[in-house]
Simulated assay, not measured.
Amino acid sequence: MIENLDCLDIKYKFVTYIIFRSICSFITSIIFSVYITKHIIKLFSNLQFNQVIRYEGPSSHYNKKNTPTMGGVTIIISTIISVIIWSDLLNNYIWYILYILISYGIIGLIDDYYKITKKNSKGITAKYKYLFLSIISLIIIYFVFIDCINQKHELPIPFIKNINFKINWIYLIIMYFVIVGTSNSVNITDGLDGLAIIPVILIATIFAIISFISGNIDLSNYFNLQYICNAGELIIFCTSLIGSGIVFLWFNTYPAEIFMGDIGSLSLGGTIGIIALLLHQEILLIIIGGVLVIETISVIIQVICFKIFKIRIFNMAPIHHHYEIKGYKESKITVRFWIISLLLFLIGIISL
């Protein structure tokens, strides 16, 4: 009886300890993000690191040309600081995510720098951008795949319990598209003030819940989720990302004081992609990231139809520009996309 009580006490301390650290990481990222963002806005404004507007884009965007960009650096810095302070740095999963966050952030930084210096909205050519993103992702995919095989993980199916897919070499292809695809989806979605950051925050929120449950063998059994021994620590990364994202949203809501830039969109997309892989929630990512998926599909459809049939399905792609040209106000489009993201988030919660 005494042994059982001691065991319960240890488990209780573990749960409360990781909750305490996750709350602290959330607060820490908010504090640092507020401080950093204010200074970054002033610095980038003085340096004239302003958004380069596509001339073929909606005319309503021309008044944004004096708004500073590369604001994603504030999310990256505040998240890294918070994670280093509050996470267990002996956990390999933390380093996997930091690797993607920083590496993709560097690619985004170079892309933004080219846009600013050349006064061209294209930046790095798509060929080289995908090449660098692919090389970075393939390196981390190797290590994650080895972990999956060693720990005999399986891929769960939302809404369907007790039916999982065994991980094999085909999973390598899925892993690649999850990281690179999600990164580019966030990049495509980041076209209106505040549009991209809310889906990222909601995805990070549900992943924080899943990592907390999956990282504890008793909770994972109770909720019928796959136990992943290193997953519990991911809640620290998720809460840090949520805190940084909320502060960025404060300054990014319409009319935005700063834009995320490719440094933010590529790194955030890659980060939620790698977290989805580590938690084996790739299918759930498609559900709760439905807005990102719709935005990406709209671009794919537009390009294919124009190249093959020489017709345009949308007035402009991605789809949020289509609604702008139809006369909808930017703020209305953004809020409605937020509502859709929230509904998809609730569906994702139900599917667990």
Rank of each mutant, 00 (worst) to 15 (best):
N4L: 13
D6P: 00
T16H: 05
I23E: 02
C24Q: 13
I27C: 11
S29L: 05
I31P: 02
L43E: 15
F49I: 13
V52Y: 10
Y55A: 11
N63I: 15
T67Y: 03
M70I: 08
V73P: 00
I84P: 04
N91L: 09
I94L: 02
I97E: 11
K118A: 08
S121T: 05
G123V: 00
I124P: 08
F132T: 08
I135D: 07
L138K: 04
I140R: 02
D147K: 09
N150F: 14
N168R: 10
Y171E: 02
M175Y: 11
F177Q: 11
V178T: 14
S183C: 09
S185I: 04
N187W: 10
G194M: 04
I197S: 07
V200C: 11
I203Q: 03
A204P: 02
I209D: 12
E233K: 11
L234P: 08
G243W: 02
L249T: 01
L249F: 09
E257V: 00
L268F: 00
L268I: 11
I272E: 01
I288G: 02
G290A: 09
V291E: 12
I294N: 05
A317E: 00
I319H: 08
H322Y: 00
I325F: 06
T334G: 07
I340Q: 07
S351I: 00
